[in-house]
Design a protein around this nucleic acid. Structure first.
Lengths: 119, 119
DNA sequence: ATACTCACTTTCCTAAAGGTAATCCATAAC
DNA sequence: GTTATGGATTACCTTTAGGAAAGTGAGTAT
């Protein structure tokens, strides 16, 4: 019985470890989560909004990240019928699953700042 | 009143955005969170345990990540009086704050796998 | 005709991440 | 004396991330 629990625990660890690696690969880099945070806060946004909201991101990098997020079905891209043309980006339902990740990171970031500025 | 709420929201976003960037910088890369997951599951571990647990990490990279985590006060390093010498790594109290991040990533990783294998 | 806006794209470059393989050092066992 | 172990370090190399700066192209306003 104790052994069974132990085996189960090892399996659980392996499974979690793989899931973690999957998630890290998908969300790796400086900007993807920052872009998503902007979309959570401001809702559907245009390229320019994102460029201004994600301070110091370059258009090249933003463009690349948006393409990547779209490929992974985390955002949608819509070309609007305006003049001049605008493009809207919105998070998908599936991307709502990432909100807990972002909020956990935000929480940790705040606590860490408090901790190191106190020390 | 509506304007005040709006200003507050902008401030909130900026604060969150900075916290997120802090956290991302601290935890960036392929391995840090994988190492921490191992420590959450297995408790205090030796170098060799971590090398075997974090499948496919090289000793060079593991060593570098451990140093980085120690510098940022997320783990402690203890040299044991054994023969041959062993070294123990343990998470700090402060690193417990990262558990929600890891678990949120694990959750998302699982859901994402389900989602893309279903499609 | 010129200039401006939005949404990019292209080129060029540097720094950092991270992998491989070999080596090191102390100790201990064979 | 040779080999094995734990915990690294070193040298070398490739790949990738990502920044800077300039350009593109369609449409609009002046």
């Amino acid at each position: 019985m104790a052994q069974e629990n132990c085996l189960q625990d090892i399996e659980l660890y392996k499974k979690r470890s793989l899931s973690l690696k999957d998630a890290l690969e998908l969300l790796s880099g400086k900007w993807k989560l920052v872009v998503l945070l902007h979309l959570y806060h401001h809702g559907t946004s245009r390229f320019k909004d994102l460029q201004e909201g994600c301070v110091s991101i370059s258009p090249k990098v933003l463009s690349k990240e948006l393409q990547n997020l779209e490929i992974n079905q985390l955002i949608t891209r819509t070309v609007n019928n305006t003049k001049p043309v605008t493009v809207s980006y919105a998070i998908t339902e599936h991307a709502l699953e990432i909100e807990p990740v972002i909020m956990a990171l935000v929480e940790f970031g705040m606590k860490h700042r408090v901790k190191i500025t106190a020390a």
